[in-house]
């Protein structure tokens, strides 16, 4: 890993312009100051709604103040057709720094890459990268093999369409899977392109513990990519076989979120 970069001329000379953001929150019935707030960040095309389905309430029921943000151009946040990865990370850091206490950042899919960028700008209590899509041409290759017509336009700046079978396990009822797929939008063309170019995120600041979770049956993130990301953060991925890429929407959504919260309760080690 390289060292922290402190000459940030771009951040100083051309700061990310503000945008209105959607933030969903689930508050525990009894406030518990020993548990850090958790901020969930959805992947490309998803919005905060994806976490509102199960994970937010579940985290709150276990005593964690739980929040989910839609980066600009996602969910009900302000449209942002020209947004960059940097702008998405900015949105995450803005929300995190606005919480009363030092927060845990949880990112899913390409949202995990957004979180990785945010970790370089905000000293999170801990970071969780769920089914992380860190991009690169290998990701594109796999996506093309699994879903040629959904992926091909994205490679040329068009819209990425992920198929139901890529996102969910077989046991998710068909109507539900169809409904979720319909709600999925897309990230900006620029951000998709940046994902392909896969500029490595800078190192996290403040040395937070980082957990990588995923599934060996993910049809978006190959196992080798999971291992690679986990290795970068000095660990091995925590695996949930049999699940689809969208861990928080799949039928067995509770297993990964419980594992994440258990890990946090143990202090992230």
């Amino acid at each position: 890993m390289s060292s922290v970069r402190i000459m940030r001329t771009r951040d100083w000379a051309s700061p990310v312009p503000p945008a209105r953001r959607e933030l969903l929150t689930a508050t525990p019935e009894v406030a518990d100051d020993t548990r850090p707030p958790v901020l969930f960040v959805p992947g490309f095309g998803h919005g905060a709604w994806a976490y509102a389905e199960h994970w937010l309430e579940h985290a709150a029921s276990r005593g964690f103040a739980a929040h989910a943000v839609s980066p600009r151009g996602h969910g009900s946040s302000e449209p942002a057709p020209k947004a960059t990865l940097r702008a998405y990370a900015h949105d995450v850091v803005q929300v995190a720094a606005g919480l009363p206490r030092q927060a845990v950042l949880v990112g899913h899919g390409a949202g995990a890459l957004v979180v990785a960028h945010a970790l370089a700008r905000y000293p999170a209590r801990a970071g969780v990268l769920a089914a992380p899509v860190f991009g690169g041409w290998a990701t594109l290759g796999l996506a093309l093999r699994r879903n040629l017509f959904g992926t091909l336009p994205a490679a040329f700046g068009g819209r990425l369409r992920l198929g139901r079978r890529q996102l969910f396990g077989r046991d998710l009822p068909e109507p539900l899977a169809r409904d979720y797929t319909r709600r999925i939008g897309h990230a900006s063309a620029r951000a998709q392109w940046e994902l392909l170019r896969a500029r490595a995120p800078e190192n996290p600041v403040g040395d937070p513990p980082v957990l990588v979770v995923g599934t060996p049956d993910d049809r978006v993130v190959p196992r080798s990519a999971l291992d690679k990301v986990a290795r970068r953060y000095g660990g091995a991925p925590l695996l949930f076989p049999g699940m689809g890429h969208d861990l928080m929407l799949d039928t067995r959504w509770q297993e990964p979120v419980d594992a994440i919260l258990d890990w946090l309760e143990k202090g992230g080690e």
């Binding site: 940030r8 951040d11 700061p15 803005q94 700008r121 000293p123």
Partner: peptide, 11 residues
């Protein structure tokens, strides 16, 4: 951007 702490942005 020049005033805030680099790891805790102003709103």
């Amino acid at each position: 951007p020049f005033t805030q702490f680099p790891d805790f942005p102003m709103p």
